[in-house]
Amino acid sequence: KFNKELSVAGREIVTLPNLNDPQKKAFIFSLWDDPSQSANLLAEAKKLNDAQAPK
C-alpha cells in the first residue's frame, strides 16, 4: 500500500510547476522518511504550489 501511495505522491510532487527543485527534493525526502504521511505531504506540497503560483 505505501509503495503505491509513495510513487503516486512522488510523481505528483515532481510535476508541481510552482515548486523549485529544493522544495520538491525536501518533500520527496520526507516521503521516503515516512511513507505513511504521503497523503498529508502531497496536500502540503499542493498548498505550497498554489501559494507560489504567479499572480
Rank of each mutant, 00 (worst) to 15 (best):
K1M: 13
K1F: 13
K1Q: 11
K1Y: 14
F2E: 12
F2K: 06
F2W: 15
K4F: 13
K4N: 09
E5P: 10
E5C: 12
L6K: 03
L6Q: 06
L6N: 04
S7C: 14
S7R: 07
S7G: 10
V8T: 13
G10D: 05
G10T: 15
G10R: 14
R11I: 10
R11N: 08
E12F: 14
E12M: 08
E12R: 04
I13K: 00
V14K: 06
V14R: 09
V14I: 14
T15G: 14
T15S: 14
L16F: 05
L16V: 00
L16K: 00
L16I: 01
P17W: 03
P17E: 07
N18H: 14
N18Q: 02
N18Y: 15
L19T: 00
L19V: 01
L19G: 01
L19C: 02
L19Q: 00
N20R: 09
N20V: 04
N20L: 09
P22Q: 15
P22F: 15
Q23C: 04
Q23K: 02
Q23L: 03
K24L: 04
K24A: 02
K25C: 14
K25N: 10
K25R: 11
K25Y: 14
F27K: 00
F27D: 02
I28V: 05
S30M: 15
S30D: 05
S30P: 02
L31P: 00
L31K: 00
W32T: 07
W32P: 02
W32H: 07
D33A: 14
D34K: 07
D34V: 03
D34L: 03
P35I: 04
P35S: 03
P35K: 03
S36A: 11
Q37N: 13
Q37G: 05
S38G: 09
S38W: 15
N40V: 13
N40K: 14
L41S: 01
L42T: 03
L42S: 01
L42M: 05
A43L: 13
A43W: 06
E44S: 06
A45K: 00
A45Q: 00
A45T: 01
K46Y: 09
K46E: 04
K47H: 06
K47D: 06
K47G: 05
L48H: 02
L48K: 04
L48G: 01
N49G: 00
D50E: 13
D50P: 00
A51F: 09
A51P: 02
A51G: 05
Q52V: 03
Q52S: 05
Q52P: 02
A53P: 05
P54F: 07
P54D: 09
K55Q: 14
